[in-house]
Amino acid sequence: MNIDDWLSEHPDLPDTISVDSSLIDILSIMLAPPFSKDIYIVSDNKRLVGHLSLKKIAHQLFPKYQAMHTRRQIIHRVTGGTVRDLMNAEFSYAKPHEELEDVFSLLLERDIEELPVIDDNSMLLGVVKFTSVLRYLVDKEKTDALCKL
């Protein structure tokens, strides 16, 4: 199965925000049901430009609860880091023509929960969630075992 087929069966649409959003608004979006640990930053022309995790935003918004800071965290705390400062602009992604097995290998290898899928113009098409793929693989294993019986 390739990712294009996977997305048509599992149309997981990730949360997206613009680079000018405030961190507290982003946190509210992420904490609203269905709760998500990742959010994607898109430019004005809807291209995917970055990624932020829930933990990173929490660190930035509630620094006084942290006893130790790295130097970067001190500066972020002092200068009130924006989405542009904080976001990870170099993130892992998948392309629609890739095979699901290869993408699952990538999720395992890089220890990530979900992978955005983008086309050649960097437009976000959806996400491949680790748990969804795992559920699919477990079901497949069970079906295969039943077939053998």
Binding site: A67, M68, I74, V78
Partner: peptide, 25 residues
């Protein structure tokens, strides 16, 4: 580290605390 530990321990907040944090960085 020493300054941040005190700021954290006493939940210090105000202009001196903010400027201090920036200056030590």
């Amino acid at each position: 580290a020493g300054t941040i530990a005190v700021l954290h321990q006493y939940r210090a907040h105000g202009p001196v605390s903010s400027l201090l944090l920036a200056t030590v960085a």
